[in-house]
Design a protein around this nucleic acid. Structure first.
Lengths: 225, 225
DNA sequence: ATAGCAGACGAACGGCGTTCGTCAAGAACA
DNA sequence: TGTTCTTGACGAACGCCGTTCGTCTGCTAT
């Protein structure tokens, strides 16, 4: 066994003043870990280890794992590119914004799932919400309708990101199993599925773009009750 | 310590022929557990305990926890009420079908998250897919567009279900925190959010209905690229 | 009668979130 | 200066979890 003192000295040498523990430092470390290992590999214990301390120490700054997830998500949402302001009509700017949101979620494995498990309220989410509202207002959507519409747009985008994320992280045998299930369907029992074949399974990027147009067109043509 | 023999006799008396282990029995037990405790309380160990055996025994019939989740999901999807066939035009029947899907997902805490983490391919999912395709075909949507549309509809429905599920299971302090964050936003920094106030947070059931109309209208008016 | 095999499962491994009690260092105060 | 109080830090432990390994057992086919 190495004595605690010597261990302490070595680690201080590596990281001279040690990291002063703080919520920011914890979130940053968690974010590093997330980018490297994905949500599945993000644990309080690993964050603590990376900060050269024990897991109990984190609880001063973070209530529990779920709160850490929320904090990490909002931190990441700061990377969403907000408004080009000029360059294109509101519709294209809206789509660009959502595509940026989509890309940010997809950049970290498993993060999209987090976006679907919380109602985030951090400052970056507020900025994103405000930007969406003002883009819709620019498009002539009245505010009450826009309030519901942005929920729709954000939820749909996160859901598609989560789906693509799963598709990426699942092993290929899983995907092959799905494709096989679709193909082996009898023409009598499920004629429509049979007729479509691979069309159902093909996961191209065009889909999300089309989905955004569907949502925007739908919002424009569907007044609130 | 009780000898293994006596334990064996007692448990056989309680459950005379013991449960012959099988994938069906495992899924049924898991489903019971899910309905009672939600996804968070569903573990292989508890399923095994309920079947009066050890966790290792389940691995003959189930590859891992994820596969169990998929199996449970498809089993539950059997409860979705498929087509009233008459009674209403295609649009209302489509909405009824998706509402049923929505209700089934929401009936078990955490299940909607599973629907968002897998690309299910079980028989019940196939039946649901086929029903959706034929309803859209009845509505005059060509098959290629319908293939993308059902993905949109299913994903959106599951996402909304997941969101409402979270809202339900989160403690109220969490929700209050969100509402407070929305209210305390400055009118200068985020005028639109400020103007909307509670409108953003209010989670009524009307929203999903409106969302379905948005999606359907959008699908009808947006041809595939 | 026996060999082979597949289901069953006890035990253990390594990981996890979280809590508790203790400790040290600094602040507030006398 | 001396003393109390507060607060961050954290070692240790608790009770879960999924999964694997090696062994046993009862049946089937030879």
């Amino acid at each position: 066994m190495i004595s605690p003192e010597s261990r302490r000295i070595v680690s201080r040498r590596t990281r001279p003043a040690k990291s002063p523990l703080s919520q920011e430092a914890i979130v940053s470390t968690a974010l590093e870990l997330l980018s490297r290992e994905g949500m599945a590999g993000l644990s309080l214990r690993k964050v603590a280890a990376a900060l050269d301390t024990g897991p109990a120490s984190l609880y001063v700054y973070v209530a529990d794992l779920n709160e850490l997830h929320v904090l990490v998500l909002d931190r990441v949402l700061g990377e969403v590119e907000l408004p080009p302001e000029q360059a294109g009509d509101w519709r294209n700017r809206l789509k660009a914004l959502l595509r940026s949101y989509f890309g940010v979620l997809l950049a970290r494995p498993g993060l999209a799932q987090v976006a679907l498990s919380t109602i985030p309220s951090g400052p970056n989410m507020m900025a994103l919400t405000e930007a969406l509202l003002s883009l819709l207002a620019e498009g002539g959507v009245d505010l009450r309708r826009a309030a519901w519409a942005i929920d729709l747009l954000l939820l749909q985008t996160a859901a598609v990101a989560a789906e693509q994320d799963n598709r990426r992280s699942q092993d290929e045998s899983e995907l092959a199993r799905v494709a096989e299930a679709v193909h082996s369907v009898s023409a009598e029992q499920h004629p429509n599925i049979h007729a479509l074949g691979d069309e159902l399974v093909s996961g191209k990027g065009d889909r999300h773009d089309w989905a955004l147009d569907v949502l925007i067109n739908g919002v424009l043509s569907t007044p609130r009750p």
